[in-house]
Amino acid sequence: MSVIIKFTAPDDTSAASIVDSGPDGVFGSLTCGNFDASEAVIEWESLLTGRSFEALVASDEPHTVTDTGEEGSPLLFVISGALQGTLARASAARLAEVGELWVQERAAKGEVFDPEMVEELLSDLADLARTAGGRGDGVYRWTA
């Protein structure tokens, strides 16, 4: 089972400094479950901003900071400024709507997610985006 931690950091260099040990205790963070976080971030950005999944992938979103390419090695990426800003400005109602749409998309692909968990995750991620924005930090995702 993968551990996924989303956290804030001032820049890619600072974020990359924890790639081997993880961000717990170093940066403000939240931990979430075992799912394809890279794909989820792209899907959430698509739902929140209206940009297509394909356009986001073509623009290299989310941006990878570190990836050795080795199976089981930590992966670190930063979410786009557009997604961070949109999350920071999103109302609770908008986050709930996006969560419901995402749960429906994943269900169509055979994955089941608890809607309340997704709504809470998006709310926590929005809080993290607000905190990061207030400090001029980015929002990163670390998986091991």
Score class of each variant (00 low, 15 high):
Asp60Gly: 13
Ile79Glu: 15
Cys32Ile: 00
Arg106Ala: 06
Ser52Arg: 15
Glu70Thr: 01
Leu75Asp: 02
Gly85Arg: 15
Arg94Thr: 04
Pro62Ala: 04
Glu70Ser: 01
Ser52Lys: 11
Glu54Met: 14
Gly69Asn: 00
His63Pro: 05
Phe113Lys: 02
Leu47Arg: 06
Lys109Arg: 13
Leu83Gly: 03
Ala58Ser: 10
Glu111Tyr: 04
Leu47Ile: 14
Arg51His: 06
Leu121Trp: 05
Ala58Arg: 13
Thr31Ala: 10
Glu45Cys: 03
Ser38Glu: 03
Gly69Ser: 05
Ala93Gly: 13
Ala37Lys: 03
Gly69Ile: 00
Leu87Ile: 11
Ser91Thr: 12
Ala108Phe: 05
Leu121Val: 05
Glu97Ser: 07
Glu119Asp: 08
Asp127Trp: 13
Ala90Thr: 14
Val41Ser: 08
Ser46Lys: 10
Ala129Asn: 15
Ser80Gln: 14
Leu87His: 08
Met117Ser: 11
Ser59Trp: 07
Leu122Gln: 12
Leu56Asn: 14
Ala55Phe: 08
Ala55Asn: 15
Phe77Leu: 06
Ala107Asn: 00
Glu39Leu: 00
Ile42Arg: 02
Thr64Met: 08
Leu30Arg: 09
Phe113Asp: 09
Trp102Gln: 11
Val65Thr: 09
Ser52Phe: 10
Leu75Lys: 02
Val103Gln: 03
Gly99Ser: 09
Gly72Leu: 07
Glu100Asn: 04
Glu70Lys: 00
Leu83Glu: 10
Asp60Val: 08
Ala90Lys: 09
Leu47Phe: 13
Asp124Thr: 04
Ser91Tyr: 04
Leu76Cys: 02
Val112Lys: 00
Ile79His: 05
Gly72Asp: 03
Leu76His: 03
Glu71Gln: 08
Ala88Gly: 14
Leu101Trp: 07
Glu54Gln: 10
Ile42Cys: 01
Ala92Ile: 12
Glu71Thr: 03
Asp114Cys: 13
Leu75Gly: 04
Ala90Val: 13
Val57Tyr: 06
Leu87Tyr: 09
Val78Ile: 12
Phe53Lys: 01
Leu101Phe: 00
Ser123Met: 06
Val103Trp: 06
Glu43Gln: 14
Thr86Trp: 07
Arg51Glu: 10
Asp67Glu: 12
Arg89Cys: 14
Leu125Cys: 04
Leu30Val: 07
Glu71Val: 06
Asp127Leu: 11
Ala107Phe: 04
Phe77Trp: 11
Thr64Val: 12
Phe113Trp: 07
Gly85Lys: 15
Gly110Thr: 09
